[in-house]
Nucleic acid binder design. Structure first.
Length: 688
RNA sequence: GCGCCCGUAGCUCAGCUGGAUAGAGCAACGGAUUUCUAAUCCGUAGGUCAGAGGUUCGAAUCCCCUCGGGCGUACCA
C-alpha cells in the first residue's frame, strides 16, 4: 500500500505537469513538477497542503493563485479527499474523506506484519558501521549515540526491505594496541612492587596537579624514574627483554578471571592515556629498545634509543605492527585475551540496550591488519599517495592546514605505523569488494566529519567508490550539565553500564509507587523496559546533529514526550482487552467481523488519520536517517490516543460503535508496538 | 588564521528540497477522577527565531556582515 502522501504527490504532480506544459513548454523540460505535499501546518487548513504550485508559478513567471486554480481543475483526488481548496498565496488544501480513512485503516488492519507499509522496490546491500567501542575501555555515554542510532537505522532499512550488513568496527589496533601492552606492563610491575597499585596513586596525583606545571613535572619525573628502574631490572639475557617478570606475567594472565582483568585493564588504559596527556611539553625522555635490522647469532638483537616518554605507547605500537611474528606470540595472546574480554562486556551492554549486534558483526580494525601494506602500496602505485616528511600521504583537494598548505591524509607514519585512516581505507575497500555494498553508512560523531570527507575523497581518487555510495551520518557531542563537552579524560566519563543501572533503578521506584500490587518479577521487567526505554528514547527524540546535553534527570524523566508515555498508552489498551472478558465483550470476534468503520467523533477521526500516517513517518525517518521523525510521530499518536481514550468509552460504548473503537485501540497498540519494539528496540510491557 | 557546526519560550528541544498566525515537553497558573490504569486529559500564560543587511509574492530556513559558543586543522581515534 502506498502512503497517502505519495499518492497525493503523484496525482497532483501529474495535474501540475498538465497545466505547466500547456502554458510554458520550456518549463516542462525540467525535472518535473513536484507537488510538495506536506502535512498541513494547521489543522484548520485540513490534513495536507500542497506547496509546490507557488514554486512552479515562479518558474513560469505567472500568478500563483491563478495557477493553483488551474491545477485544481485537473486534480483527480475525489476518491481520497473532500473538494480541494485554494488558499493564501497559492496553497492547495486537502482534507481526507472519513470514508477513505476508514477504508485505508481496514486495509492496514488486514496486514498484520507490515501494517500496510510496502517494501522498497529497489532493495540494496547496505553496510552500516556503528557502535565501534575501544578495546580495554569502558563504554561511556559517548558510545550510546552511535550504538543506538546505528541500530535504529539498521532496523529501519531492514524493514524497508534492504539487505543490511552491520559492522562493529571496534578500536582494537593502532595506538590502542600499544596502550594495552604498556598497561599490562604497568599491571605487572605494580604487582611486583605490591601494596596499593602505584598507578592508582599516580592517577590521583596527575589529576590534582593537572594545572600546576612544575609539580606535574616532578610527578612525571618520579614516575619515569620508577619506570626505568623496573624496566632495567626486568631481564635475563639482555637489558629490557622482559624475560624475568613481564613474560612470565603474560603467561600467568591465562589463569586469571575475566572480570578481574577487565576491571584493572580499563583503569590502566586510562592511566596510560592520562600520563601521556600530562607529559606533553614536559620534555622528559626514556630509554627503549628497537630490533636491529641485522644481527649475529648470540648477539643482542636489540639496540637502545632515547625517545620522548609520552610517545612510548606509540613506539610499542610500531613494534607490535608485526604481532603475528613468532617473537610476539605472548603479546599477541595477551592482546587477544583483552580483546575477547572487552567484547564480552560490550555485548552485555548491547543485550541490555536491546541492540541487535552480535559477535558475527564484529569486524575490528585488527581484522584489516594484513591488508594495510597492500592498501598503501596500491595508492603509491596509482600515484595517489606520495611520501612527505617520511610519512606516506595523500593530498586531496580542498583541505588546508593551519598554515594554508595542503592537508595530508596520512596513511603511514614516519615510524612505519599505520593509522585509522589506513584501516578505514582497507575496511572501505573490503566493504565494496567483498561485501558488495551498494551503500555504506558511517554512524559517528560530528567531530570526525573532516576525516570522513577526506576518506571518501581519497577513496574516490583511487577509484574505489562511486558518487553517492557513502554517507557520514553524524551526531552531536555529549555535553555536560555545564554545556561544555564531556571530555574523555579519565574519571570524567560516565560509564554506560552505571547509567543504565540507575535508569532501571529509578524506573523501579516509580513502578513500586504506581503499581505496588504487581508480582515482583513483573515489576522488574517493567522497570527494565521503562528505564532503558527512557534513556534510548531521550536520545532518539533529539535532533541527531545537535549536541547532546547529558543529564540524568532529563534522560530519566518519565513524563511528557518520553518512552513511558507511549508504553503507558499501550498498557491501557492491553488493560481494556483484559477487562473485556468481565464485561462479556468478545474482542476477537468483534474485530474479525468488522466490515466498516464509524468515525463520527472528532477524537476517533483524528486518531484514525494519525494511524494512516505511520508509513509516512517510517519513510521519512529512514530516508534521512533521523529517528526523531519516528519518535515525534509515535508521540503524536499516543497523544491522540489519550484524547480518544478520555472522550470515547470503548467497552461501554453502544454495541454499534464498539467494533470501530476496538479496532482503533488494537491498531494503535500494534503501531506503538511496531514502532517501539521493532524499529527502536524499546520494549512494550502489557502492564505498567 | 582557515574550515565546519550551532545560537528558536525561564529550562530542554522540534520545526522535513523556502510556505500560511514559529510548535512540543518540563517548570508556572486554572480546571477534570463514583465510569476501560491520573505515568492521563482540557485550558491559560510565555517569542525582536543572537543582531544588522540582502535575495522574493513569502525567510527560523538561502546569501553577506557582526557578536557569542563548540569542533577540527601532518604523523591520536
Amino acid at each position: 500500500m502506498k502512503t497517502v502522501v505519495d499518492i497525493l504527490e503523484e496525482r497532483i504532480s501529474a495535474a501540475m505537469a498538465a497545466v505547466g506544459s500547456v502554458g510554458s513548454p520550456q518549463v516542462s523540460g525540467q525535472s518535473g513538477f513536484p507537488a510538495i505535499v506536506r502535512p498541513a501546518a494547521d489543522a484548520q487548513f485540513g490534513d495536507y497542503q500542497v506547496n509546490g504550485v507557488m514554486a512552479l508559478a515562479k518558474k513560469m513567471k505567472t500568478n500563483p493563485k491563478q495557477l493553483a486554480e488551474k491545477v485544481l481543475e485537473k486534480i483527480d483526488v475525489a476518491d481520497i479527499c473532500e473538494k480541494p481548496e485554494v488558499a493564501g498565496p497559492g496553497f492547495i488544501n486537502l482534507k481526507l474523506k472519513p470514508d477513505f480513512v476508514a477504508q485505508n485503516l481496514l486495509q492496514i488492519n488486514i496486514d498484520n506484519k507490515r501494517l500496510g507499509i510496502e517494501k522498497t522496490d529497489r532493495p540494496q546491500t547496505v553496510v552500516v558501521d556503528f557502535s565501534c567501542p575501544n578495546v580495554a575501555k569502558q563504554m561511556h555515554v559517548g558510545h550510546l549515540r552511535s550504538t543506538i542510532i546505528g541500530d535504529c537505522i539498521c532496523r529501519l532499512l531492514e524493514f524497508e526491505g534492504h539487505k543490511v550488513i552491520r559492522q562493529n568496527h571496534i578500536g582494537d589496533w593502532g595506538t590502542a594496541l600499544g596502550m594495552v601492552i604498556l598497561g599490562l606492563w604497568h599491571m605487572c610491575m605494580a604487582e611486583k612492587r605490591g601494596g596499593k597499585p602505584y598507578y592508582e596513586n599516580d592517577i590521583e596525583d596527575l589529576k590534582v596537579y593537572a594545572n600546576n606545571k612544575q609539580e606535574l613535572k616532578n610527578i612525571c619525573n618520579r614516575i619515569r624514574i620508577r619506570h626505568e628502574e623496573d624496566w632495567e631490572e626486568d631481564f635475563i639475557e639482555w637489558r629490557g627483554d622482559g624475560k624475568k617478570r613481564f613474560k612470565p606475567f603474560l603467561d600467568n594472565l591465562k589463569t586469571r578471571e575475566d572480570s578481574a582483568i577487565w576491571e584493572k585493564i580499563t583503569i590502566l588504559y586510562q592511566y596510560v592515556n592520562l600520563l601521556e596527556e600530562s607529559l606533553v611539553g614536559l620534555g622528559l625522555t626514556t630509554i627503549t629498545r628497537v630490533k636491529k635490522k641485522s644481527y649475529k647469532k648470540d648477539e643482542n638483537p636489540f639496540e637502545y634509543i632515547s625517545i620522548p616518554y609520552e610517545s612510548l605507547s606509540r613506539h610499542i605500537t610500531a613494534m607490535m605492527q608485526n604481532i603475528d611474528d613468532k617473537d610476539n606470540e605472548q603479546e599477541k595472546d595477551a592482546w587477544e585475551r583483552i580483546r575477547k574480554i572487552s567484547l564480552k562486556y560490550f555485548h552485555e551492554i548491547y543485550r541490555i540496550l536491546n541492540v541487535k549486534l552480535s559477535m558475527e558483526d564484529v569486524r575490528g580494525e585488527s581484522d584489516y591488519r594484513k591488508n594495510l601494506s597492500s592498501t598503501v602500496n596500491d595508492l603509491l602505485r596509482h600515484n595517489t599517495a606520495v611520501k612527505s616528511n617520511e610519512a606516506i600521504c595523500i593530498f586531496p583537494d580542498g583541505f588546508k592546514t593551519k598554515e594554508g598548505k595542503p592537508l595530508p591524509f596520512i596513511i603511514q607514519k614516519s615510524d612505519g605505523a599505520y593509522l585509522y585512516a589506513t584501516t578505514d581505507l582497507a575496511a572501505l575497500r573490503y566493504r565494496v569488494k567483498e561485501l558488495k555494498a551498494d551503500k555504506i553508512i558511517y554512524v559517528t560523531d560530528a567531530r570526525q566529519k573532516q576525516h570522513f570527507e577526506m576518506l571518501f575523497k581519497v577513496a574516490k581518487m583511487a577509484g574505489w567508490l562511486k558518487d553517492g555510495q557513502v554517507f557520514h551520518v553524524m551526531f552531536g557531542s555529549v555535553l555536560g550539565d555545564d554545556g561544555k563537552p564531556l571530555k574523555t579524560r579519565s574519571g570524567e566519563n560516565v560509564k554506560l553500564k552505571e547509567l543504565l543501572d540507575e535508569a532501571v533503578e529509578r524506573a523501579k521506584a516509580v513502578v513500586e509507587q504506581k503499581n505496588s500490587d504487581l508480582p515482583d518479577e513483573e515489576k522488574k521487567e517493567i522497570a527494565k523496559a521503562v528505564g532503558i526505554g527512557a534513556v534510548k528514547y531521550a536520545d532518539f527524540s533529539n535532533n541527531r546533529t545537535s549536541d547532546y546535553v547529558f543529564s540524568f534527570d532529563k534522560m530519566l524523566a518519565m513524563e511528557g514526550n518520553t518512552a513511558p508515555y507511549m508504553q503507558y498508552a499501550y498498557a491501557r489498551i492491553k488493560s481494556i482487552e483484559r477487562k473485556a472478558i468481565s464485561k462479556e465483550v468478545d474482542v476477537e470476534k468483534e474485530l474479525s467481523k468488522i466490515k466498516s468503520l464509524d468515525l463520527a467523533e472528532r477524537a476517533e477521526l483524528d486518531l484514525a488519520k494519525q494511524l494512516v500516517r505511520y508509513g509516512e513517518a517510517v519513510e521519512s525517518a529512514a530516508d534521512d536517517y533521523r529517528p526523531n521523525y519516528l519518535t515525534s510521530y509515535l508521540y503524536e499518536l499516543a497523544q491522540k490516543f489519550s484524547t480518544f481514550y478520555t472522550t470515547c468509552p470503548v467497552l461501554d460504548a453502544a454495541p454499534a460503535k464498539r467494533p470501530t473503537r476496538l479496532l482503533l485501540c488494537d491498531l494503535t497498540a500494534r503501531t506503538i508496538e511496531h514502532g517501539l519494539r521493532k524499529l527502536l528496540g524499546i520494549e512494550v510491557p502489557k502492564q505498567m
